[in-house]
Design a protein around this nucleic acid. Structure first.
Ligand SMILES: NC(=O)c1ccc[n+]([C@@H]2O[C@H](COP(=O)([O-])OP(=O)(O)OC[C@H]3O[C@@H](n4cnc5c(N)ncnc54)[C@H](O)[C@@H]3O)[C@@H](O)[C@H]2O)c1
Ligand SMILES: NC(=O)c1ccc[n+]([C@@H]2O[C@H](COP(=O)([O-])OP(=O)(O)OC[C@H]3O[C@@H](n4cnc5c(N)ncnc54)[C@H](O)[C@@H]3O)[C@@H](O)[C@H]2O)c1
Lengths: 204, 204
DNA sequence: AGGATTTTGTTCTTTATTTCACAAAAAATC
DNA sequence: GATTTTTTGTGAAATAAAGAACAAAATCCT
């Protein structure tokens, strides 16, 4: 298994390749990829090595082949569904932005406590009461979830999700969730980020 | 200067202390803090050492004194203003959530290209056309900014901000900004995060 | 008062990550 | 066809981060 930092860069490389103007085919050098992704060239080569793809000296990497190799590592073998819990401002923002961006990864179920936000279709996505997590998540084979509920509700929601089979969580609530071993979690909190950035911004 | 990982944990310690129920005063041990923040106890002690505060054997750390020491490191000496560029779904979500949460850190100016979103007051915050960045940012002494514009506009916005004096950026646009040395940047992209999480979630 | 106990501060190890540097390979040139 | 050039793949070195361990300190208990 590949480690988180490497995976993150691999995803970045793919995006850089896809966004790099017209040039979808032809060759590309590690140092060119390095510039696109904002990392060093040896780093690129080592990371590419990790997915088993080989370039060739002088001509570098074949864009198509590299993209294919990256896709095989990054993309789920078959389409995968994501759950989003907490259809508030930030939840809807994410839903709106994310939907349709990745072919094999889509938000497939929404959950909320508010009766007004439940049993509806929002951005083409069905919403359910949180109590239905235990039923809906397994039935859609969901393993990835986004939590965007207020802090006080996040631990309860996380427990429900994990019990229903979720193995990876993107958490926007400002608390540190206690989860069993083996659940992959990533925390995203604006306040923490801004305090950090402000600290470095003032160390002139 | 303290490194980013340490600062992030210090911020986390403070939040954990503030959120830890009623117990605002009295003592706390490094291993208790470790549990609250989800890190190891030696890590806590090492980090606390970095801010120059000392606990005492047996009684541990004094909560009040530790909070004060953390605040001195984390908080800006005087109130600091943040700019937010791109008052769309995600921008408004952040504004709504962030405003009023931190005493010395507040979003003080909004910028957008859309004439309908400009020269208004949104969540108690004045909005300006992007062209005004060069004037407003220096006049408010803003050094921290949030970018939540579409990807294609992000580099231009970043350049304007940096030219106007911004030293730290929280970037929600899905591109890697090219910035001069010394500008602190943090990227936040849901798509990248979810692809990463999905990868680990399926490595059962 | 003195020993037992517990926790901090800090050094020393270990582990992880990145960069350096260069041999091997392949295309281009003469 | 030999030589030059350039780039990959990767071992070795450097750097960074985390953990283990323990002496010194301070409270508690007898
Ligand atoms: N990291 C970030 O960038 C960021 C930004 C904004 C907000 N947030 C966090 O996300 C949370 C949501 O923010 P928001 O601005 O969207 O708030 P919001 O109030 O607009 O939305 C919260 C939603 O969660 C629902 N909810 C509440 N309790 C629930 C429960 N137990 N189960 C299911 N749903 C429940 C509410 O009905 C509401 O729809 C905030 O508490 C904040 O912690 C994070
Ligand atoms: N990281 C995340 O979690 C996340 C989530 C959603 C969106 N996003 C990113 O943030 C961006 C904004 O997302 P959104 O859903 O709010 O989109 P949106 O279209 O609702 O908002 C974009 C805003 O930016 C403004 N804008 C466009 N060009 C501009 C320019 N040159 N200068 C100033 N303002 C400009 C628009 O007028 C609009 O108000 C998206 O492109 C996406 O890349 C990130």
């Amino acid at each position: 298994m590949i480690n988180p930092k490497v995976i993150e860069r691999l995803i970045l490389y793919r995006r850089s390749l896809l966004m790099d103007g017209e040039a979808r085919s032809g060759q590309i050098y590690s140092h060119e990829m390095a510039v696109l992704a904002g990392v060093s060239a040896p780093q690129v080569r080592r990371d590419v090595m990790a997915i088993g793809y080989s370039g060739s000296p002088i001509t570098g990497y074949d864009r198509q082949a590299l993209l294919r190799a990256l896709g095989e590592m990054i993309d789920p073998p078959e389409p995968e569904s994501v759950a989003l819990v907490g259809v508030g401002d930030i939840g809807r923002g994410i839903l709106h932005y994310f939907q349709g961006r990745r072919p094999r990864l889509a938000i497939a179920a929404l959950f909320d406590k508010d009766p007004d936000k439940v049993n509806r279709v929002i951005h083409g996505c069905r919403s359910y009461p949180v109590e239905e997590i235990a039923r809906v998540v397994p039935s859609l084979k969901i393993r990835v979830a986004i939590i965007s509920v207020p802090g006080f509700a996040a631990q309860d929601v996380a427990d429900r999700l994990v019990n229903a089979g979720v193995r990876g969580i993107l958490n926007y609530a400002p608390i540190r969730l206690k989860l069993p071993e083996g659940i992959y979690i990533e925390n995203r909190d604006v306040i923490l980020s801004l305090e950090k950035i402000a600290y470095f911004a003032r160390q002139t």
